[in-house]
Deep mutational scan, measured.
Amino acid sequence: KLPPGWEKRMFRSNGTVYYFNHITNASQFERPSG
Rank of each mutant, 00 (worst) to 15 (best):
N21T: 04
Y18T: 00
E30W: 08
R9Y: 07
I23S: 04
N14W: 07
W6G: 00
G15Y: 04
W6A: 01
N25K: 14
K8D: 03
P32G: 05
M10E: 09
N21D: 04
M10L: 11
F11P: 00
N21R: 03
Q28V: 04
P3E: 03
R12T: 14
V17S: 07
I23Y: 12
S27R: 15
N21Y: 06
N14I: 06
F29S: 06
A26L: 11
Q28Y: 03
N21W: 08
A26D: 09
G15V: 00
R12P: 13
R12D: 15
V17D: 01
S27H: 12
I23N: 07
I23D: 07
Y18N: 00
K8T: 09
S33P: 13
P3G: 04
F20Q: 02
T24P: 04
R9S: 03
E30Y: 05
G5N: 06
N14M: 03
P3L: 04
Q28W: 06
G5H: 06
S27D: 02
P32E: 01
K1Q: 14
F20R: 00
I23Q: 06
N14L: 09
Y19T: 00
L2T: 03
Q28L: 05
H22F: 14
S13F: 12
A26S: 11
G5M: 02
T16Q: 14
E30H: 08
R31G: 03
R12F: 09
F29E: 05
V17G: 04
H22S: 13
Y18A: 00
G15L: 07
L2Y: 03
E7I: 11
V17W: 07
S13L: 08
G34A: 12
Y19E: 00
A26P: 02
G5D: 05
F20S: 02
T16H: 11
N14K: 10
S33A: 09
G5S: 02
Y18L: 02
F11Y: 14
K8W: 05
N25F: 10
N25L: 14
A26K: 13
S27A: 12
G15S: 07
Q28P: 02
P3D: 04
L2E: 15
W6F: 01
G34T: 12
R31P: 11
P32W: 02
Y19L: 00
V17F: 13
I23W: 06
P4V: 08
G34Q: 10
K1S: 15
S13R: 10
N14T: 14
Y19K: 00
R12Q: 11
S27T: 14
S33F: 12
A26I: 15
L2K: 15
G5Y: 05
R31M: 09
E30G: 07
S13I: 11
F11S: 13
S33T: 13
S13A: 09
N14Q: 09
F11R: 09
F20Y: 14
R12H: 12
P32H: 02
R12E: 13
N25D: 06
N14D: 14
P3Y: 02
Y19R: 00
Y18S: 00
T16M: 14
T24R: 06
T16S: 14
L2F: 05
F11T: 09
K8N: 02
N14V: 03
S27W: 15
P32N: 01
P3R: 01
R9E: 02
P4T: 07
I23T: 07
R9P: 00
F29K: 07
G34S: 11
Y18D: 04
K1V: 13
T24H: 03
I23K: 07
V17Q: 05
S27M: 15
W6N: 01
T24N: 06
N21P: 00
S13M: 05
L2C: 10
P32F: 04
Y18P: 00
E30T: 10
N21S: 05
G5E: 06
M10S: 08
Y18K: 00
Q28S: 07
Y19V: 00
T16L: 14
S27G: 05
P4G: 05
G34R: 10
H22R: 14
E30R: 05
R9D: 00
Q28F: 04
P4R: 08
Y19Q: 01
G15W: 05
L2I: 04
P4Q: 07
S33W: 12
N14S: 14
E7V: 13
Y19I: 00
V17N: 05
H22M: 13
W6Q: 01
G34W: 15
S13D: 11
P4N: 08
P4L: 08
N25T: 06
H22N: 13
F11M: 13
P4M: 09
P32S: 03
T24I: 04
E30N: 07
F29L: 11
R12Y: 12
R31W: 10
R31S: 04
S33Y: 14
G5A: 03
